[in-house]
Structure formats: C-alpha cells, structure tokens
Lab assay of single mutants.
Amino acid sequence: MEVVDPQQLGMFTEGELMSVGMDTFIHRIDSTEVIYQPRRKRAKLIGKYLMGDLLGEGSYGKVKEVLDSETLCRRAVKILKKKKLRRIPNGEANVKKEIQLLRRLRHKNVIQLVDVLYNEEKQKMYMVMEYCVCGMQEMLDSVPEKRFPVCQAHGYFCQLIDGLEYLHSQGIVHKDIKPGNLLLTTGGTLKISDLGVAEALHPFAADDTCRTSQGSPAFQPPEIANGLDTFSGFKVDIWSAGVTLYNITTGLYPFEGDNIYKLFENIGKGSYAIPGDCGPPLSDLLKGMLEYEPAKRFSIRQIRQHSWFRKKHPPAEAPVPIPPSPDTKDRWRSMTVVPYLEDLHGADEDEDLFDIEDDIIYTQDFTVPGQVPEEEASHNGQRRGLPKAVCMNGTEAAQLSTKSRAEGRAPNPARKACSASSKIRRLSACKQQ
C-alpha cells in the first residue's frame, strides 16, 4: 500500500481520502468484538498479612480480608486513616479506646483483636480482627420478611446475652447493641463488635452510672431520649438488646419516626405494640426488656430465667442462610486472597510482582521504634555504632529488605517449588510478632 504524507491529507475531501486508502487503516468495530484482558491483581503485604478484597466500608474506614502468612488464618483488617478520623467527632479517641478494650477481652461471643499495625509515614492504622463471614443486618436484609425464624432468632439472642453478660462482668457498657454490630462466623457463632462508643466503668465505681451516649437513635432507651444527665449503663444495653430481639423476630421496630426528633419523642413516651403472632412468652420477655422505668427493666439474670429464653424451640421454618457475597455473588464466600496468593505462588519472584506497604510497620504502639547501633568497621576489626531503624520486634528492616532482594536475584530452581506461605513470609520485609 502506498504511504501517504499526513501533511497532504488536509487537502483532500472525505471521498478523496477514502480513495487514497484511509479506509485501510481506520476501522470501526462493535464493542462486543473487544476482548478485555482482566487487570492483574497485584499482591500487597502489610507486615506478614497478605491483603485481599474489600469486605465493607463504614464511617471510620474500610475493612478488607487478609491472610496471615505465618498461621494461614483468615483475618479481617480495619484500615483507618488518621486524616479521616480527625474529621469525625471523637474519632481518634474512640478508636484508641476500642483498641484498649479489645486487647483485654477474651470471649467467644466478643470479636477478638489479633494485631494492631501502624504506618507512621502514611498515617494509617490497621486493626487486624478475627474473620466473620457476614453481619446479622446483612442476613436480615437478604430476606423479604426482614426477620429470622424463632428457632434461629433464639439461638442468636442467647449468644448475644452470653457476650453481653461477659462485657458487663468486665465493667464495660457497649451502648450500641444492634444487628449491624453483631457479626457471624461460618459456624454460626455470634460476635459482638464495634466497641468504639463503649465505656469502661471505673474499677471502684459504686454502680453503672453513665453520662454520655453515642449509640444508634432507634435503639436508645427513654432515659436517653428524654435527655437525662445520668442513667444506668447496663440497663441501656438491656433495652438495646430488647429492641434487637423485637427486630429479628418481627422484622419491625418498636419505635419509629420520620426524623430523629419524632423518633425520640415516640421513644420518650414509651408506647409501642407487640405483634400478636409473637406469642405470650416472647411478648412477656419483650415487655420486661423494654420496660420504661430502668429500675423495673429486666436484668440479665431475669432474662436467663425467663421461660422463652430457657425453652427449646424446634425449627418450624427453614433458617435464613448466609447470603452470597454482594460484589462477586459467591454463595460460598470464598477467600478473596486466592488470586493474590496464586500471583505470588505461580509467578517468578520479581520485585515488580508484589507490593510491600512499607519497609517498617510499627505494631502494638503509636510511637516510632527505637534505634540500635549499626556496626561500623574500624582499624582493629571492631565496629562502632551508628543508628539503624528496627521493627518493634527488633528485626532490622533494611537488612531483611536487602537480603530479600538478593535472594530474589539468585538463580535457584529449587526455590520455585516452595509453598505459597513460605514465599509470602520471604517477601515480607518486616516480620511481626
């Protein structure tokens, strides 16, 4: 084909351009004929944790799935940006308080904090938690009735009371019990989460009196709706648990309003109706937990002794299953770290194939690490110290990083047969305790 000078094309009309061969290198194709290559998922490591896909996002930050490269346990990490926390009232204080509380709590029905990582340079905090497959609110939203069968609701409620009793025994008032803060594992274990607005009572406090509340409006008791200066913290949790039980068994809320002012007005009056299909035992329990006067409201001991709580409820309806993943529609909620794991395991070791967030990740503290002497050669063979940054567990980050890069360049065919977990650990520049 004859090559045409581009400067001469402006002298031709459209018809003349076609005659000189423009149609031979300008093609129009339908979008259905285009085959897009999927974007390669680059592996990203935060300390010893391999990052997966997004699980959810809230006002405080994002939650992603991660894999512990040492234990191969599935975890969830809450990623918090200090810049964003400053824009939220009491944001930083709530996060630090939640970390302090979770560090000393150990119960099967309370979410466990596994690790805390802090990135000084990017001003990011990573709260590594045990993995929960789904939230209770997500399960309720997945069915038209917006409720659980009585047998399933009873099982979840009993676990909620177990976890709540443990928190109260530790002198902690949750203040925000609701389905949105109750998570579930694949085995059906309920976990109380989000202790950001919780309050730890003084060890020598005479009672459970509280003065502040930041919980969700629909789950607040009349004493808070009416603006009382002080109130019983434990009875606030009992009320919120009662509203939660009402919601998961009926699909409704005892109090509603077009806006928060109308909602608080209705809560302050204390008038509500219980659907007739709840039955006398459940209705009596709800009335005891939603008692207007805090002094007359049920205690956890009274809830445990109630006939509806103690009764064994046979399954009359099919239980609400864990819904498919909202993004991938995966009904099994498979591990989202698998594509990243395959990338590390299947590809040659190259620095361009993975990302390490930083050479140094500070753990379990908000301060910069200490310094240790770096050896410097002298005339008599002895070495003197220069400062060298280290990880919180004493690992020399720069030395590990250099060693990792040197190993990656060394030709050794046997290394390709290593397991995925050992490869992740070798790529991680800074081991965590």
Rank of each mutant, 00 (worst) to 15 (best):
V66E: 01
K191R: 11
I177G: 00
L164V: 04
P413K: 13
L341M: 15
E138Y: 07
P217C: 02
K329Y: 07
D352N: 07
L102V: 05
V128F: 07
Q159K: 03
I361M: 07
L72N: 01
V3F: 06
E16K: 01
S404E: 10
T186P: 13
C132T: 13
S142I: 05
I111D: 14
P411E: 15
H345V: 08
F366I: 06
L201D: 04
G276E: 14
P387I: 13
I267D: 03
A389I: 14
L45A: 04
R28G: 03
V143I: 07
S142K: 13
G163S: 02
T186F: 10
F264Y: 06
D358V: 12
R310S: 13
K44M: 03
M22P: 13
R384A: 10
G135P: 15
P275N: 11
N226M: 02
R331W: 12
A406M: 03
S404Y: 05
R383L: 11
K82I: 10
S401N: 11
K175V: 02
D359G: 10
I248M: 09
N226T: 09
R40E: 11
S213F: 10
H379V: 12
K423T: 14
K235S: 15
Q170M: 13
S283G: 08
G394E: 09
E291F: 04
R383I: 14
L67Y: 01
S334A: 05
T367K: 02
I111T: 03
G58L: 00
D365A: 03
F298A: 13
Q302K: 03
E376V: 06
K146W: 02
P275S: 05
P179I: 04
K287N: 12
K431M: 09
D348G: 09
L140S: 00
Q214Y: 08
N119V: 03
E92C: 15
G385H: 14
P275E: 02
C151N: 04
L290S: 00
R211E: 13
P144S: 04
L400F: 12
S271R: 06
L55H: 12
S240H: 06
L285V: 01
L184G: 01
A414R: 14
R304I: 02
M125Q: 15
N266A: 12
A318S: 10
G56E: 07
D350F: 01
G242C: 00
D330S: 12
R147E: 00
L80S: 02
T212N: 02
K287W: 01
N94Y: 03
A417I: 13
T250L: 12
K48L: 10
G233C: 11
D194Y: 00
I248D: 00
A410H: 09
Y340V: 14
E120G: 09
L285I: 05
T230G: 02
A347R: 13
P326C: 10
V368Q: 04
S299V: 05
V95W: 02
E342T: 14
P315Q: 10
K122M: 09
C418S: 13
L67A: 05
N380I: 06
T230K: 09
A420R: 13
Q382F: 07
S193I: 08
D330A: 08
V110G: 01
E317M: 01
K262L: 07
R103C: 06
L286H: 00
D115V: 09
L400D: 08
A225R: 06
D208Q: 14
G188F: 05
G215T: 08
S69A: 07
R75W: 01
D30H: 10
Q112G: 05
G270D: 13
V114R: 02
R39G: 06
R147P: 01
D208G: 11
A397F: 10
I88W: 02
A273R: 07
N119H: 10
A273K: 03
A206D: 06
V173L: 01
Q170T: 01
P411G: 07
K62T: 15
A316Y: 11
G188W: 05
D207N: 03
F12L: 09
F298D: 12
G135D: 06
P323V: 06
K48I: 10
L427E: 13
D237N: 10
I161F: 00
K48N: 05
A206P: 09
S240E: 13
G180H: 15
D350V: 08
P179G: 01
Q170P: 01
G15A: 05
A406P: 08
Q220E: 02
N266I: 11
R333P: 15
E145R: 08
G135R: 11
L184C: 04
A218C: 05
K108P: 10
D208T: 06
L386I: 07
A295W: 10
K122C: 12
G381F: 07
L285Y: 00
P89N: 15
Y49I: 09
H313I: 12
C158H: 13
L140E: 00
G61Q: 05
R426K: 12
E317D: 14
I35D: 15
G276C: 08
G135Q: 14
T13K: 01
K41D: 11
G163P: 00
L427I: 10
A410Y: 11
F354S: 10
F148G: 00
K84V: 01
G58I: 00
Q170H: 03
K191V: 08
K416N: 05
N119I: 13
Y261W: 03
E120I: 13
S240D: 04
K312W: 13
M129I: 03
K235V: 04
M335P: 12
N380F: 06
L286F: 05
D355I: 08
L427R: 14
I267G: 03
D352M: 08
M335Y: 10
K108I: 11
S142V: 13
P280W: 03
L344T: 14
C391A: 13
Y131W: 03
A389C: 13
I300W: 09
P387D: 14
E223I: 01
K262T: 06
F231L: 04
V128Y: 11
F219W: 12
Q382Y: 09
G242Y: 00
G276S: 11
T395D: 14
M335E: 10
Q302H: 07
V116H: 08
R86E: 15
L102G: 06
R425G: 14
R409S: 06
N109T: 05
P144Q: 09
V95A: 09
Q214R: 12
R39V: 08
S401E: 09
P144R: 06
D229M: 09
G188R: 08
E291A: 12
L245W: 00
P319D: 13
R425E: 09
L290P: 01
Q305L: 14
F354K: 14
R331A: 00
V338I: 12
E357Q: 07
A377P: 11
E14P: 15
H174N: 01
